[in-house]
């Protein structure tokens, strides 16, 4: 659905996007994560044809965004991190304007009604946008972005400033949009909430994509192992670091966490080798990684390299 090849975007003396390439499958929800200043917003704005990169190509649903930005806008809905609404207009008029401005030519009233129902805004259509709560404003803004039924929805930090209930509602909405056939690209700092709906993770750092992988379907031969010793032991940590099947490793006192590749056999072999190396083990187990840990591991691996 989204194909990005060798994308470069520069500010004077600073390369914000550095030769980035990736592709995103249709009907997926991709979490775009990375530290502040990593290039998330710049990348999203380039994808939406709002900023023109120096070189590279972006294709959204078969349309070259750089060559034909206007045509690509029919396929893309975008919600920026600091979105705005026409506060003086009623919600119904806001949605109607968005529909007309985005090229919806027939059954505009039906589109407005449908979108409002979809976003549970039907009882707010007569209320002025400026009178709504932050969560409801967010819903109206998303309504404006999806009223022309785009194939791709790009959302920059959509959950910032929302209370937990509104965040939960937003996560549910994204799931519904995904099932309705929309491809979502969502950036957020709050990784725990992305976990609720994201199917893929794209990690960006220093303008480069450092990892892209599916969530919840991590390769079966790669797992996260936690080892707890009686006391902190630097020799064992060094011994583990030297082993080829061990990936990233962190030690917090007597507790060691590491990435292990090789499946069940390798896990058994590792335990055996640890015992043989006189490691005083209290606990040895695999742990399911959440998005936050996964992201931090990716960052650590990048730091190590």
């Amino acid at each position: 659905m989204i194909e990005v090849r060798n994308l470069i975007f520069e500010y004077p003396g600073h390369r914000a996007i550095d030769n980035v390439s990736f592709s995103i499958d249709p009907d997926s929800v991709t979490a775009l994560v990375g530290p502040n200043g990593a290039g998330k917003t710049t990348l999203m704005r380039c994808l939406c044809g709002l900023d023109r990169p120096l070189s590279g190509s972006i294709v959204v649903d078969g349309i070259d965004v750089i060559e034909h930005p206007r045509r690509s806008h029919e396929k893309i809905g975008y919600l920026s991190d600091f979105f705005g609404l026409y506060d003086e207009l009623p919600v119904g008029q806001c949605l109607r304007y968005a529909a007309e401005a985005n090229g919806v030519t027939s059954q505009i009233d039906a589109s407005v009604r449908q979108t409002a129902e979809h976003l549970r805004l039907s009882d707010r259509l007569e209320q002025r946008a400026g009178e709504l709560s932050r969560g409801l404003r967010q819903r109206v803004a998303i309504g404006q972005a999806i009223i022309h039924k785009p194939r791709v929805l790009v959302l920059d930090e959509p959950a910032s400033g929302l209370d937990p209930e509104a965040r939960h509602d937003l996560a549910e909405l994204f799931k519904i949009l995904k099932t309705s056939g929309m491809t979502l690209l969502v950036s957020s700092h709050i990784l725990a909430e992305l976990e609720a709906y994201a199917t893929e993770m794209l990690v960006i750092r220093d303008g480069r994509i450092i990892e892209q992988r599916q969530l919840g379907t991590r390769a079966a031969d790669r797992r996260h192992v936690q080892i707890e010793l009686i006391a902190a032991n630097a020799t064992i940590v060094d011994w583990l670091k030297a082993r080829p099947e061990i990936g990233s490793i962190t030690a917090d006192g007597a507790r060691i966490s590491c990435e292990l590749s090789g499946g069940d056999d390798a896990q058994g072999q590792l335990l055996k080798a640890l015992v043989a190396a006189d490691a005083e083990i209290v606990n040895f187990s695999t742990v399911e990684q959440d998005l936050q840990s996964s992201y931090l591991n990716s960052i650590r691996e990048q730091n190590d390299t």
């Binding site: 044809g49 975008y78 979105f83 022309h148």
Partner: peptide, 9 residues
């Protein structure tokens, strides 16, 4: 609201 207008049809 300018970005939304820039992306309009």
């Amino acid at each position: 609201t300018w970005d939304a207008q820039r992306m309009s049809a």
